[in-house]
Computed example of a mutant assay.
Amino acid sequence: MLNARTLRTWITSALGSEAVAKHMVAVSTNLKLVKEFGIDPQNAFAFWDWVGGRYSVCSAVGVLPLSLQYGFPIVSKFLEGARSVDNHFHTTPFEKNIPVLLGLLSVWNVSFLGYPARAILPYTQALEKFAPHIQQLSMESNGKGVSIDGVPLNFEAGEIDFGEPGTNGQHSFYQLIHQGRVIPCDFIGIIKSQQPIYLQGEVVSNHDELMSNFFAQPDALACGKTPEELRSEKVSDHLIAHKTFSGNRPSLSILLPSLTAYNVGQLLAMYEHRIAVQGFIWGINSFDQWGVELGKSLASRVRAQLNMSRTEGKPVEGFNHSTAMLIKRYLKENAPIPVDLLPSNV
């Protein structure tokens, strides 16, 4: 809302107060506040008040900006893809139900085998933001320590999600995955490249080169490399231990036919339902986020303190010693910028 008020000030300073109704739209469940803000309620896109932010991609919150970026015909394909997996999840028997099977695997890895993390590894730069989105979807939903009835859990629930596009991750954290901690991995590959390139004289195309890594990494995690294999390859004895890979490290591979809007919608919905399945089995409420609310309420106290200290010179009080010292340092070295000194384009 502060960003919205900043933008409103920028618009009205140049075009007058009436410009808000003509140049700003809202996505909101509260038409009264939309009108009070200055936006015409006719220019408000509604959605249900029970739709959580991380599940709102298919509501007006997500579809409006996606439509402005790509056009609604493309976004409609995205929605159709998501709906196809919704129907699959709703109607398919459990033994063939992909989100159910994936959810069961995650619960097995987390609660039974004790593997707390999961890596999401798309072998395409176009999905570079997919892992961070699933990180929020999963960790904000299932990061719980009590059951839906408020009883403390006697087992571990929730998982630590992270990831990077394939070859970026290979030079970042794959070393840990192969020879350090056991981290289940989701490998996501694409059969048809969006930008196929084949250089004359090269052994394979650019996409084949990328997919060679996609196929090799799960194989390496599963099979590893034994000391006997290394000795047969004449590896020096002092390097045997360093080059041994234990193998038997869990992963799954998802191979999409192409990276169309429809297939991306399927991929997103598959993970959404998978995370819901985990929550159902763990007996937790995947659709609240009280941990987030605590941070927001504490931020309100800090906001009030900053205002009083800057406008009235009030001392910093009511915080633990560490936080109080940080706030004091911040106030001392970061005086507010006078409005008339802000750049004209802010």
Rank of each mutant, 00 (worst) to 15 (best):
L210W: 11
L210T: 13
L210K: 06
S212L: 09
N213Y: 15
N213I: 11
N213T: 11
F215H: 14
F215V: 15
F215A: 15
A216F: 04
P218D: 05
P218R: 05
D219H: 12
A220V: 02
A220C: 13
A220G: 10
L221F: 10
A222T: 02
C223Q: 08
G224E: 07
T226L: 10
T226N: 11
E228Q: 12
E228F: 12
E229H: 08
L230V: 00
R231P: 04
R231C: 03
R231G: 04
S232Q: 02
S232T: 00
E233T: 02
K234R: 02
K234F: 08
K234M: 06
V235T: 02
S236H: 15
D237F: 01
H238R: 14
L239W: 10
L239Q: 03
I240L: 13
H242A: 14
H242F: 13
K243N: 11
T244R: 03
F245D: 11
S246C: 11
S246T: 06
S246L: 15
G247K: 09
G247E: 00
N248R: 15
N248E: 05
N248I: 08
R249F: 01
R249P: 02
R249Y: 01
R249T: 00
P250R: 07
P250S: 01
P250I: 03
P250Q: 10
S251F: 08
S251Y: 07
L252Y: 11
S253H: 09
S253N: 11
I254K: 13
I254P: 13
L256V: 11
L256F: 07
L256K: 12
L256C: 11
P257S: 07
T260M: 03
T260F: 05
T260R: 15
A261N: 10
Y262N: 09
N263V: 03
N263C: 07
N263D: 05
G265E: 06
G265K: 12
L267R: 09
L268I: 11
A269D: 06
A269H: 13
A269V: 03
M270L: 15
Y271V: 05
E272M: 12
H273L: 01
R274H: 04
A276H: 15
A276Y: 14
A276S: 09
V277P: 05
V277L: 02
G279Y: 03
F280L: 07
F280E: 08
I281M: 06
I281W: 04
G283R: 05
G283T: 07
G283Q: 00
I284E: 02
I284W: 04
N285V: 08
N285D: 12
S286M: 00
F287M: 03
F287Q: 06
F287S: 07
F287K: 04
D288G: 00
D288E: 04
D288C: 01
D288W: 00
D288K: 00
Q289I: 01
W290N: 05
G291W: 07
G291C: 05
V292I: 02
E293T: 01
E293R: 05
G295T: 01
K296Y: 06
S297N: 15
L298P: 01
A299H: 09
A299C: 04
A299M: 09
S300I: 00
S300V: 00
S300P: 02
A304H: 14
A304L: 13
A304F: 07
A304Q: 14
